[in-house]
Amino acid sequence: MSDTPSHGPVKSIMPKWVRGPQDFVGGVALIAIALFALWASSDLQGMRGFSFGAGTAPRMFAYLLLGLGVAVMVVGLVTEGVHLAKYHWRGPLFVSLAILSFALMIRPMGLIVTAFSSFLIAALGTPETKWTETIIVAVCLTAFCSLLFPYALGLPLQMLPKFMIR
């Protein structure tokens, strides 16, 4: 990956004894995922004799991940490593919001409204957005999508909001 976090003097929230915060946090997260999976699969049946139950393989992989998570964490503790990368909030927030609004709106509002509004929400993700051109492109894209998907590709997408169809 090209943007490996810098070694620069980022003020670290990590205590000093964590020498590779990036790996340390990564390992801890893997451990958390593994523990969550173990909890989630705890209600499943285990081995019956020598045949696998529904829960055998999930638990096997979860324990494996647990072990690997611990290993990554220990590596982060004992070897000098990179600091935590800087997170930005704007891009992730608005792109997620755009996706979420798409999911919520597509059923009741139809493709035209949804595609247009999701485009605009996503565009909030960068300070470089210039609104006139963005709106023009959004209109064009919406028109293009509403021709391409239902007509050219024959996908069963609803175009207009539900209340307008009735």
């Binding site: 792109v95 755009a98 996706i99 999701s118 485009f119 605009l120 996503a122 565009a123 993700g125 960068t126 470089e128 957005t129 210039k130 051109e133 963005t134 492109v137 959004a138 894209l141």
Partner: peptide
């Protein structure tokens, strides 16, 4: 800035 909302 115009490309990424379209991709989304």
């Amino acid at each position: 800035r115009l490309m990424f909302p379209s991709i989304v």
